[in-house]
């Protein structure tokens, strides 16, 4: 299988703190890869490297055959159109209605008429299980609905890759399950390459085709859910069992 994204020997520090330390990771095309790791362990930083929000101190980020660390702002914008991203809190523009939020990338990057845009917006909202909410403001929606709207916005331009930054954090078990199902369905229906960041053990085995464990600035385990379950790596074992005993230091 072909690799959609390759991260090669990524180093990144903020001041004296080394966050990524020689990280290598390949993301396969048309698969969902889940990245797990400690809170504050650099997972969000890794995600921001993939989409070019942060440039690495050294190393390469190859997306679809192109090293994005060498691109300027304009070229980077072209690459970003291949991406959709679902932020932790949704990051909906709270000065705009739901409809305007979802149509934003369409208005920005396509030459569609208002009527066409309205149709696409309704279609995308329907795909995430929402109807008739176009006129509402994000503040009027519940947390779960906001995430659905954010997902609708992320897939509005038919991206090849969608990034999920902790999509189920802060949701109740029922909603968590619903969002997981949504990720699975969306990935299958649109044939997306998905990268999901999560600490929710249930979720990772449910949505992930591949699972990667980020620890100490490196990917120390990578494999299918079965391989991960069978692994004897002490860090992984401690992480999955949620034990306080083991190599992960609790500060």
């Amino acid at each position: 299988m072909q690799d959609m994204i390759q991260l090669k020997d990524i180093h990144k520090s903020f001041g004296a703190q080394k966050v990524l330390d020689g990280l290598d990771l390949n993301i396969e095309d048309g698969q969902t890869t889940v990245i797990i790791g400690r809170s504050g362990g650099g997972k969000s930083v890794l995600l921001k490297h993939i989409i070019g929000l942060i440039r690495p101190d050294s190393g390469q980020v190859v997306v679809d055959g192109e090293d994005i660390t060498k691109l300027n702002d304009k070229q980077l914008n072209e690459v970003r159109k291949k991406f959709g991203m679902l932020f932790q809190e949704g990051a909906l523009f709270d000065s705009m209605t739901v409809g305007e939020n979802v149509s934003f990338p369409l208005v920005e990057h396509t030459k569609m008429t208002d009527e066409e845009i309205r149709q696409v917006v309704a279609e995308r909202l329907k795909a995430v299980g929402l109807t008739g909410v176009e006129g509402k403001m994000p503040s009027e929606l519940s947390g779960g609905m906001r995430k659905r709207v954010a997902l609708a916005r992320a897939i509005a331009l038919h991206p090849q890759i969608v990034l999920f930054d902790e999509p189920t954090t802060g949701l109740d078990p029922v909603l968590t399950e619903a969002i997981n199902q949504l990720i699975i369905d969306t990935q299958r229906n649109l044939n997306l390459t998905c990268i999901v960041i999560s600490h929710d053990i249930e979720s990772i085995f449910r949505v992930g085709h591949k699972i990667a464990l980020l620890y100490g600035g490196k990917i120390i385990e990578y494999g299918t859910p079965e391989e991960i379950r069978a692994s004897k790596n002490p860090v992984l074992v401690q992480f999955l069992s949620g034990s306080t005993e083991g190599p992960i230091q609790i500060m």
Binding site: L53, R80, E89, F93, P105
Partner: peptide, 12 residues
């Protein structure tokens, strides 16, 4: 709330 990051991500 990462809305500015969201703008960057949407190439805006």
């Amino acid at each position: 709330t990462e809305q500015i990051d969201a703008l960057y991500v949407m190439a805006a």
